[in-house]
């Protein structure tokens, strides 16, 4: 474990807590893409099933359980408890355009042609693009509540921090994970436009608004 990865994981944890806080306090999931949240459930289940046969550490297992549990809970909140506040008519990104290419890529690029490793690759590719329905929705509505932007910022910072972690591991441990690095760079890249508006507007106390 190094500081970059620890801070990255904590940022990921924080993002989910911020999202839960937003939903619970406003009693609404307005502005949140159900499709993105459903994709995260698929990502976590596909990747963290190794929970059942591979023990790394208590930290590792606890985080995996938390990510699977909290993402399913968020889906439940959106689909049942706060269903009237969820507006599917603005959540229109076609997720098959993400699922199919990710499935094909995971069959080509994996570290071992076996179901668990293919699922792992699939989850890495899918995670890198899972935010697109959410960003697409933001683009359509043109604005967002501050707390929603804090959620997105924490989520973006999480993968951004994994990049120095991989550089650090390359030099200290001599290992490189080309699949995760490539997908991680793509994933972080998708946030650049968002980060620009977030750091220049929201953190200066202005409203998150995209230019028309």
């Amino acid at each position: 474990m190094n500081l970059f990865r620890l801070l990255g994981d904590l940022s990921h944890l924080a993002s989910i807590l911020v999202l839960l806080h937003k939903i619970q306090t406003s009693r609404s999931c307005r502005g949140i893409s159900f499709k993105t949240q459903a994709l995260y459930v698929a990502v976590f289940v596909a990747r963290y099933l190794d929970l059942f046969w591979r023990y790394i550490s208590l930290y590792n297992s606890a985080m995996k359980v938390f990510f699977i549990g909290s993402s399913c809970y968020i889906l439940y909140l959106m689909k049942y408890r706060y269903r009237p506040t969820n507006d599917p008519s603005i959540d229109t990104f076609r997720i098959e355009y993400l699922l199919v290419p990710c499935a094909i890529l995971s069959l080509i690029f994996n570290y071992n042609f076996m179901p668990t490793e293919i699922l792992w690759s699939f989850s890495i590719f899918l995670e890198s693009v899972a935010i697109l329905p959410q960003l697409f929705m933001l683009q359509r509505t043109g604005e967002a509540e501050a707390i929603t932007t804090h959620y997105l910022a924490a989520l973006g910072i999480y993968r951004a921090l994994y990049i120095p972690n991989w550089i650090y591991r390359y030099f200290t441990e001599g290992v490189i994970d080309p699949i995760a690095v490539t997908a991680g760079i793509v994933q972080t890249g998708l946030y650049l436009d968002f980060f620009y508006v977030y750091f220049t507007k929201v953190l200066q106390g202005q409203k998150f608004e995209l230019p028309a």
Partner: peptide, 10 residues
């Protein structure tokens, strides 16, 4: 350098 995935990452 080995190309492999570190199994301890989340």
């Amino acid at each position: 350098v080995d190309a492999e995935r570190p199994k301890d990452e989340l």
